[in-house]
Simulated assay, not measured.
Amino acid sequence: MTSPVTLNSDALALLHLLDQDQPGSFAKLIRLFAADAPALLSRIELAHERRDPAEVKHAAHFLRSSALALGATDLAEAALRVEHLDPEHFGAGPAELKLAQLRVALRDALLSLLEQTPAL
């Protein structure tokens, strides 16, 4: 079992302020992220298998941006490492390790975000 993920408190505070102004918006953002993030991970993995660096970069960048917006900094850092993978390393150990780290970071971020979310 991994240690709990710490979400960026400033990002969470902004999201809670948004939720005060527009009730339910925080939960809606989390639901959207929870629906989209696994698909982005799949795009990254498929692009990696196909040796398509442009698609890996694009999908990882989108995942990183979404993670940062929700305060999931560990996920954002893992996505950044994948975003900047050297195409020559696709299919090799270092790239596989970074993809594995991204999978774990995504799982941990989703669990932490869902714990922070008012009744979905």
Rank of each mutant, 00 (worst) to 15 (best):
F90L: 02
T6M: 03
R81P: 00
P23H: 10
A54R: 07
K98Y: 10
P94V: 13
A119V: 15
L7S: 07
E55T: 11
S9M: 08
L70P: 07
G24Y: 03
S42L: 09
A79D: 02
S3L: 04
E96M: 01
E115L: 09
K98W: 08
D19P: 11
L120W: 14
L68P: 15
L40T: 01
A78N: 00
A59D: 11
M1H: 15
T6C: 08
K98T: 07
H16P: 08
G24V: 14
D36V: 14
S42C: 05
E88A: 12
L17Y: 12
L80Q: 07
L63F: 06
G93E: 04
V5A: 03
S25C: 05
L14S: 12
D86C: 05
E45I: 10
L29D: 06
M1I: 10
S65D: 06
L110C: 03
R31I: 13
H58Y: 11
A27F: 15
S112A: 12
L18D: 14
L85M: 00
D74W: 08
L102Q: 02
D21V: 06
Q116G: 05
E77S: 09
L41S: 00
F26E: 07
R43Y: 11
F62L: 15
E96D: 06
R51E: 00
P38W: 06
A119G: 15
D86S: 11
L80T: 02
E88H: 01
Q101S: 04
Q101D: 08
D74N: 06
L113S: 10
L41A: 08
F33C: 02
L17D: 15
L7V: 01
A78C: 12
H61G: 11
P23I: 10
L29E: 13
A60I: 06
R50T: 11
E88K: 03
A69Q: 13
L7T: 01
P94H: 02
S66G: 14
S42I: 08
S65V: 05
T117D: 05
A78R: 01
A100H: 04
A95G: 10
P94S: 03
E55G: 08
F90A: 05
H89L: 15
A59L: 12
A37E: 04
S9P: 03
L7W: 06
A59M: 09
Q22E: 12
A59W: 13
E96H: 05
A72L: 02
A11K: 07
H61E: 05
L70T: 09
L63N: 13
L111S: 13
S66R: 04
L68D: 14
L80D: 09
E49L: 08
S25N: 03
S3Q: 08
D108S: 00
Q101H: 05
V5T: 07
L41P: 00
A67V: 01
E96V: 07
L85E: 05
A79F: 00
A37Y: 12
T117G: 06
R43A: 07
A39K: 13
H89P: 10
A105G: 00
R43Q: 10
P23Q: 09
A11F: 06
S112E: 02
I44H: 04
D36Q: 14
A60V: 12
H48K: 01
L114M: 12
G24D: 11
N8L: 13
I30F: 14
L12W: 13
L40I: 03
F90P: 11
A119W: 15
S9G: 09
P87R: 04
F62R: 12
L68T: 14
V5G: 13
A47N: 05
G24W: 09
A35C: 10
L113A: 11
A100D: 10
P38Q: 10
L97G: 03
